[in-house]
């Protein structure tokens, strides 16, 4: 019993004493955080406060000036393959190639992360792209690009979701569906770390917040 309890408390991802410096500005200093299974965390703060930088550091895309990020008590730089199998990061840019169709884009993105690709048509249907499967992505809108990227959420086994502004260019209904998806994911033992400027309704109660402030120095 105690074993299970301790495992439940074990953090999925944690950061110790992160310092991030961009150009001459210290964005944040000595930031430590622990994110466990079931957490939905919103990083908030004004533009330029370092939200994206924090997410990128947590995902291992940027190196912090000082400090370290841990995946289950192992530094992510030492367990890259395992960490990346358990991580889904979506940045500002959707990572969708204009020269490929919606279905090719999704298939490639899934296969690149070593995931099954036999349900891609269902996934695209679920994100309201039914009928656009074979259109070249360059003919689709920004919101549709975002949906192609988000369709990966439906198929992934990764427990850690790091999403930078996932609701950009997504309509109201889509936002609600996404929020439900986040709640389900958290219920199943995953965690979601996201930034957004929208007011969320469904997930608001469960959500924890990290506030970053704009610092002059």
């Amino acid at each position: 019993m105690s074993l299970i309890l301790s495992e439940q408390l074990a953090p999925l991802i944690s950061a110790k004493q992160l310092t991030c410096i961009r150009e001459d500005r210290i964005l944040f200093e000595q930031l430590s955080l622990t994110i466990c299974a079931g957490d939905i965390i919103q990083v908030e703060g004004p533009n330029g406060a370092g939200k994206t930088s924090l997410l990128r550091i947590l995902a291992g895309l940027s190196q912090p000036f000082e400090g370290e990020v841990y995946f289950q008590d192992q530094a992510i730089t030492h367990c890259r393959e395992l960490f990346h199998q358990n991580l889904l990061y979506l940045g500002h840019l959707p990572g969708v190639k204009g020269e490929m169709s919606a279905i090719e884009n999704l298939t490639f993105n899934l296969a690149l992360h070593g995931l099954e690709t036999d349900q891609v048509e269902d996934d695209l249907a679920q994100v309201n792209l039914l009928g656009f499967e074979d259109s070249l992505a360059s003919h689709l809108s920004a919101g549709q690009h975002r949906r192609i990227a988000l369709a990966r959420l439906l198929n992934t086994k990764a427990p850690i979701w790091i999403l930078d502004e996932p609701f950009t260019a997504i309509d109201k209904q889509g936002v609600q569906n996404l929020e439900q998806l986040f709640l389900d994911h958290a219920e199943q033992g995953g965690c979601v770390i996201l930034t957004t400027h929208q007011d969320l309704t469904l997930a608001a109660k469960r959500m924890k917040k990290i506030s970053l402030t704009y610092r002059l120095y």
């Binding site: 393959e81 990061y89 840019l93 959707p94 990572g95 969708v96 190639k97 992360h113 070593g114």
Partner: peptide, 15 residues
């Protein structure tokens, strides 16, 4: 790099 797929490649579990 411009459309973000490079990031996704760096984040894939493959070397």
């Amino acid at each position: 790099h411009a459309d973000g797929s490079l990031e996704q490649m760096l984040l894939s579990p493959h070397p």
